[in-house]
Amino acid sequence: MEKLEIFKQVGKNIQQIRQSKGLSQVDLVGCIEGNIDTTNISRIEQGRTNPTLLTLYRIAQALEVPLTDLVKDSTTKVAEK
């Protein structure tokens, strides 16, 4: 998977989790500890920026999900045993 595809997948994961919890981007920003703005969340969700590990951790905490949920690759098939 290429770098831009990874950014887009992470952004898609964040957006899906946020929407499943009924949160707007503004709501999410309000739940995040630290200095982050709605514009940055928008860029992350669109896959247009490379968020730091600390930013991803804060987003995961705000969404109340494990960090792995944000970075998982939903296109990878699980091998059958």
Rank of each mutant, 00 (worst) to 15 (best):
N35I: 07
C31M: 14
R18S: 01
I32Q: 06
A60R: 00
I41V: 07
Q61S: 12
Q9D: 08
G47N: 10
Q46S: 15
I6N: 10
K3Y: 13
I59F: 04
Y57H: 10
T55R: 09
I17T: 03
L56E: 00
R43D: 12
N50D: 13
K72L: 09
G30F: 06
G11R: 07
Q61I: 07
Q15R: 15
Q25A: 14
T55E: 06
Q15K: 15
S42T: 14
L53D: 07
R43F: 11
A60P: 00
N50P: 01
G30S: 06
D69Q: 09
V78W: 08
G30R: 05
Q9W: 00
L56P: 04
G34T: 06
S42Y: 12
I17G: 03
T76M: 12
L53Y: 07
I44R: 04
N13L: 10
T39P: 05
G22S: 05
L23G: 11
Q16H: 13
R18M: 01
D37K: 09
I17W: 00
V10C: 02
M1Q: 12
T49V: 15
R18F: 01
N40S: 12
K3M: 11
Q9L: 13
K81N: 14
T39E: 13
I59G: 01
Q16T: 10
N35M: 12
Q9P: 07
T55I: 13
L4W: 09
P51L: 03
R18D: 05
